[in-house]
Computed example of a mutant assay.
Amino acid sequence: MRRVFYWFFLGLGVAVVLGLPALALALRLIWAPFYIPAGSMKPTLLVGDYFFVNERLPRPLARGDVVVFRHPVNGADYVKRVIALGGDTIAMQGGVPVLNGVALVQEPLGEFEEIMAPQGPQSVLPRCANDPVGQGKTCRKSLLREVFPEGRSHLVLNISDAGPLDTTPEATVPEGHVFVMGDNRDNSADSRLPPQAGGIGMVPVSNIRGHADRVLFSAAGSWLYDFGNWRSDRYGMQIE
């Protein structure tokens, strides 16, 4: 994930239209804008989503939170979901997270469908459970609702239960760290992999910049100002 600097243009527009420059500045000091260039957090965040991160009004970390953090090695900004906290044990069994010895419930919800076509400025192609899929055809993945023992839930995507990261040994999350994963489980390099293997490993809490709050808008085209391809159903959508 990379940070974008459209906020100046946005803030200026808000200030001019509403005549509230002080308010616009105050909002910018609390919420920072970010952009999604890849698909590791589908279906929660889509390629082309521009969303706000609450950097100045921190709240306690909880399992299920979507957070932006600095990579422990290269310092780049990433967005993932917190699955386990310091002191928790975590493993993967057949694509299902096992938290403190209890497998999370995964309720099947049918299929997630998207068109096989380049997405975003990086022209990323989606991965599909029904590969091979031709250009312009329908790409499908299993859609599930994953539920934590305390009842909190979120949506995840699955291509296969036998991928290289679908079964992992149990590990204990060190205190002061979190274990994070992408919601697009077969298309995310996350805490299941150490940094030297191209993943993230355990993330220090001190590296977390803030919670992802809301999608501002979503550009489905290859560039920001392709207004005809903005997704109208995602304006102001709360990130869960």
Score class of each variant (00 low, 15 high):
residue 158 N to M: 15
residue 158 N to S: 15
residue 158 N to F: 07
residue 158 N to V: 14
residue 160 S to T: 15
residue 160 S to Q: 14
residue 161 D to F: 07
residue 164 P to D: 13
residue 166 D to V: 11
residue 167 T to I: 09
residue 168 T to Y: 08
residue 169 P to A: 07
residue 173 V to E: 07
residue 173 V to K: 13
residue 174 P to R: 05
residue 174 P to T: 06
residue 177 H to M: 09
residue 177 H to D: 05
residue 178 V to L: 01
residue 181 M to P: 05
residue 182 G to N: 05
residue 184 N to C: 02
residue 185 R to D: 00
residue 186 D to T: 11
residue 187 N to A: 13
residue 189 A to S: 12
residue 189 A to I: 01
residue 192 R to G: 13
residue 192 R to M: 08
residue 194 P to N: 10
residue 194 P to K: 11
residue 195 P to H: 07
residue 196 Q to H: 11
residue 196 Q to D: 12
residue 197 A to D: 10
residue 198 G to M: 02
residue 199 G to R: 09
residue 202 M to V: 10
residue 202 M to D: 06
residue 205 V to D: 00
residue 205 V to S: 01
residue 206 S to E: 08
residue 207 N to P: 04
residue 208 I to Q: 04
residue 209 R to F: 00
residue 209 R to P: 04
residue 210 G to Q: 07
residue 210 G to T: 10
residue 210 G to D: 03
residue 211 H to Q: 09
residue 212 A to C: 07
residue 214 R to F: 07
residue 214 R to D: 00
residue 214 R to M: 04
residue 216 L to W: 05
residue 216 L to D: 01
residue 216 L to Y: 07
residue 217 F to N: 10
residue 217 F to R: 10
residue 217 F to G: 12
residue 218 S to D: 00
residue 221 G to P: 12
residue 223 W to S: 15
residue 225 Y to E: 11
residue 229 N to R: 15
residue 230 W to I: 12
residue 230 W to S: 11
residue 232 S to C: 08
residue 232 S to Q: 11
residue 233 D to R: 14
residue 234 R to Y: 09
residue 235 Y to P: 09
residue 236 G to Q: 09
residue 238 Q to K: 15
residue 238 Q to C: 02
residue 239 I to D: 04
residue 239 I to W: 02
